[in-house]
């Protein structure tokens, strides 16, 4: 499903959460929506899901989404499970909602996921642990099989093994049922291998939209003898570094010129792709006055 956003602005009183944002998503990819707390991720997703009337334009496959029955049928936004379920409802009842109201709902898959994430069907949503509620949100999102599925930090409450199970499940399901999936997360490195394209927003504005591989090529991880790494990175923009004994790894922003590559080889340094998380921090927080 193609997503077109043009001049989108979301305001809460005096606060501008999304500020004149424009972008297009071609669809059938897993997109990462990255941004610091309060950067406007949830507001953006709310507008994409038709939760609020947009100032500007939000179109799905060329049709406006707000109060458009045909377009809304194609969308599912989940942030934990709170607004897709009532706290007083049993989990089994929540699944009934999905089955009753969503044409694309796959109840067999929902039950499979509930078992995978060990969510008790007879328990009320309000009595589930944070991790179980997060998992229930993921179940609602994935089982909806919506052409545009958005998971707004919905997996953050899960423990590490459950998150890894979620990543595997997400990838497997996406391979079997390709669709447009947008995930916002703070756990960037954990999820980075799944992301095909990344949008980074900051202070309500789109900072960057790029293929994840292209984004990674914007920087280099330089590893080797600490003094050699220091010599090599002198004058370059170093996003972060870590040392272990005499070995040091530094994240360098910007493409390396041919002569720098030759010098790295001479110094015996290893060059590798940069961590997405370091790039994200650099792009959303001024380093040395530069962004």
């Amino acid at each position: 499903m193609r997503v077109d956003v043009q001049g989108l602005t979301v305001r809460y009183g005096d606060v501008t959460a999304v500020d004149d944002m424009s972008f297009s998503l071609q669809g059938n990819k897993i997109y990462g929506l990255l941004g610091r707390n309060g950067s406007g991720k949830t507001s953006l997703m709310s507008a994409l899901a038709g939760y609020r009337r947009p100032v500007g334009s939000v179109q799905l496959d060329g049709a406006p989404v707000f109060e458009n029955a045909a377009a809304l049928r194609q969308v599912c936004l989940v942030r934990h499970s709170a607004h897709a379920a009532d706290k007083g409802d049993k989990v089994s009842y929540v699944l009934e909602y999905g089955a009753a109201w969503r044409d694309t709902w796959d109840n067999g898959y929902a039950l499979e996921l509930v078992e995978l994430f060990k969510i008790p069907l007879g328990t009320k949503v309000g009595e589930l642990s944070l991790g179980q509620r997060s998992a229930l949100g993921v179940v609602i999102g994935l089982a909806s099989r919506s052409p545009l599925t958005m998971l707004d930090e919905s997996h953050l409450g899960m423990d590490t093994p459950t998150r890894y199970a979620f990543y595997d499940t997400l990838l497997h399901d996406f391979m079997e049922h390709p669709r447009t999936i947008i995930i916002s997360t703070h756990l960037i490195e954990e999820l980075s291998s799944l992301l095909e394209e990344v949008l980074i927003i900051d202070a309500g504005r789109l900072v960057l939209q790029e293929e994840a591989d292209v984004l990674r090529s914007r920087g280099t991880e330089v590893t080797g003898n600490a003094s050699d790494v220091d010599e090599f990175t002198a004058g370059l923009t170093v996003l972060s570094s870590r040392s272990l004994g005499r070995t040091k790894a530094a994240m360098v922003y910007g493409a390396l010129a041919d002569d720098q590559l030759v010098r790295a080889r001479q110094l015996g340094l290893e060059l590798g792709p940069i961590a997405l998380q370091d790039l994200f921090v650099h792009l959303t927080e001024p380093v040395g006055g530069k962004r």
């Binding site: 029955a69 009532d86 909602y97």
Partner: peptide
């Protein structure tokens, strides 16, 4: 308060 948000979350319009 409870059911309208759930309906929208499950892809239904406010009008419906």
């Amino acid at each position: 308060h409870n059911m309208l948000p759930i309906a929208v979350a499950h892809g239904r319009t406010r009008r419906e």
